[in-house]
């Protein structure tokens, strides 16, 4: 084996071993072939009793989709504001970036303190009669807002990291060409940010899809997203629940992989569009025939 392969081996083997073992075990257990006690017995019951599984998948997809959309929109606003609003913009970008190391568990607790029935927000607004229930509703509002809050900072960071170098100068150029602040955001910053927004959106979607803490702390008891259902069944004293837990876990893996596949495909198309546009740093002589060049003066 080459030295290069030896260098990469520990990391790759660790991933292959843990990942492979995890997926294989999950598959076998979901089919009843690796029970904790007793004889292995092949059964697809955990898969075919599909109603709950489909419902959970639907909840997970709903949470991930809405959270991602919100995070992308707010994250883009933060980035656009940072690029166009001078010192105030940079301050907000810095504050937003500072929230990134906050764990989701902490953020879920914080959103809970903010949004519960008699939480901080309700108190700020003077405990109005019609204050909606946000925590533990069928709409998953609090969990979605938790994801959107945390992940919008991530989206803003990715967008700013990707385009801040080019966007500032291009935005100024657009201003000298008569573009207002709104036009600069829509016609310069948004097109430049499309690819980083897509990448960040995909990462956010996959993360929120598989995340446990926020839906567990801030969601209703039922219906459950895949993560909450799997963890509940996994910890159940009823050993028969184990195949269902594993089937739920594998369903989430399958959907995540499918989404990533589609997402990467979409991003590749997006990138191909912009690769044609990426500036090439070569300096050739003008290919114009000299007769045309001198013709300009006439």
């Amino acid at each position: 084996m080459s030295r290069a392969a030896l260098l990469a081996a520990p990391a790759v083997l660790l991933v292959v071993l843990v990942l492979g073992a995890a997926l294989l075990t999950a598959l076998l257990q979901s089919l009843g072939l690796l029970p904790l006690f007793g004889e292995p017995e092949f059964s697809t019951a955990a898969w075919t009793d599909g109603g709950a599984l489909v419902e959970s998948a639907g909840v997970s997809l709903y949470i991930a989709t809405t959270s991602t959309l919100l995070a992308v929109v707010v994250g883009f606003l933060i980035a656009a504001y940072a690029l166009t609003a001078g010192r105030g913009g940079r301050l907000i970008a810095a504050l937003s970036a500072a929230t990134i190391p906050i764990p989701h568990l902490v953020a879920s607790g914080a959103i809970g303190l903010l949004l519960t029935d008699a939480g901080f927000l309700a108190r700020l607004l003077g405990m109005p009669e019609g204050f909606p229930q946000l925590v533990g509703t069928d709409w998953w509002t609090a969990a979605i807002l938790e994801f959107a809050w945390k992940e919008s900072a991530f989206v803003a960071l990715v967008v700013l990291g990707g385009i801040s170098r080019s966007a500032a100068a291009l935005s100024e150029t657009a201003a000298t060409l008569g573009a207002s602040a709104r036009q600069r955001i829509l016609h310069v910053i948004l097109p430049l940010a499309r690819l980083p927004l897509g990448v960040a959106g995909l990462v956010v979607f996959v993360y929120t899809f598989g995340s446990y803490e926020a839906p567990w702390l801030l969601g209703p008891v039922a219906p459950e997203p895949l993560s909450v259902r799997a963890v509940r069944l996994f910890g159940s004293v009823d050993l028969a629940a184990r195949p269902e837990a594993m089937a739920t876990a594998l369903t989430s893996v399958g959907i995540a992989v499918a989404v990533i596949g589609l997402g990467v495909l979409g991003l590749a198309l997006l990138a191909r569009g912009s690769r044609r546009r990426s500036p090439r740093r070569s300096q050739q002589h003008s290919q114009l025939p000299s007769s045309r060049r001198s013709g300009a003066g006439s």
Binding site: A169, E172, T173, T176, G178, S180, S274
Partner: peptide
């Protein structure tokens, strides 16, 4: 800048890549 009607050209061409 957007209302001043002055055209500005920098050392880098800064063409909009999109």
């Amino acid at each position: 800048a957007e209302h001043r009607e002055s055209g500005l050209m920098f050392q880098r061409p800064l063409l909009f890549p999109h």
